[in-house]
Amino acid sequence: MPSAQTVPGALMRFRKTVAYLAGAAVVVAAVGLYLTRPRHVDPAEFDRLTGDVERGALVFAATGCASCHAAPEAEGEARRVLSGGRGFASPFGTFYAPNISPGPVGTGDWTVLNLADALRHGTSPDNRHYFPAFPYGSYSRMQAQDIADLHAYLMTLPASDAENRPHDVGFPFNIRAALGGWKMLFASDDWVLDGDLTETQQRGRYLVEAMGHCAECHTPRNALGGLQTDRWLAGAPIPGKDGRVPNITPAALSWSEAEIVEYLTSGFTPDFDSAGGEMFEVVQNTAQLPRSDREAIAAYLKIVPPIGN
């Protein structure tokens, strides 16, 4: 056995370099994990707010929670039971919507702050990153009062004891710690459409960019699943299915504002075809909003940059 003294100097230096690099990698990883750790809202923003159930029902419709969290195939009243279970195909695997009904399996013990952390930052009550199949990249722009109202409404819904189904997502996309980096790259609470907007256009922007999370389907994604904001609302493939989610920028959507409002009310297109697919559920939600909100959505859609196919 050679003793340490007999190890040649070059090998010694090599070992030192390796040890140094390994140490540096650990430090970089630690700093990276620290910088991308799950974020939380400032409690002070919420501590004077009282949630209003009736207004919360409208927030619930605008944010479309039931479209994903109601049981698959649920219709009518059954859509108020947010038992989860619906699968969402993606290039990274299949995500299953969790039970968010106000019971022991779901969100029965959630505070307003828990809900705000989830919606604004994609952070769970046990301080982990949610996968962005949950559209916190849009909900990040939600106002505190709307979150408080939504919390009040969610707590009035029926509880379900349906167990959560684990996501079917393979390595490396199943590493939740890496999602902090994803958020840093792709989640933002800035508006996509900036500039001088009228009050109606601003309301429309809030409904489309934040609560309605329209871009989550209507905007194409990059290889890592981040929204390509330079092709905002310009249409995208439907994950796991044939066909495309349509381009709804003025380059492709020629409907008048009144026609857009009608579509979001009854589902009828200008030539009296009717909304199908996922948009059927979206229209069920937008139909519950005040007409002024549907008009605001139409006003916003008219001022987004036109992008051809």
């Binding site: 439907i238 044939d242 066909g243 495309r244 349509p246 589902g267 009828f268 297109t269 075809d273 009717s274 909304a275 199908g276 697919g277 996922e278 948009m279 059927f280 559920e281 229209v283």
Partner: peptide
Amino acid sequence: CGACHQNYRQSDN
């Protein structure tokens, strides 16, 4: 109308 188109028609308008 939409309830049928939701599940039974290819969506790609």
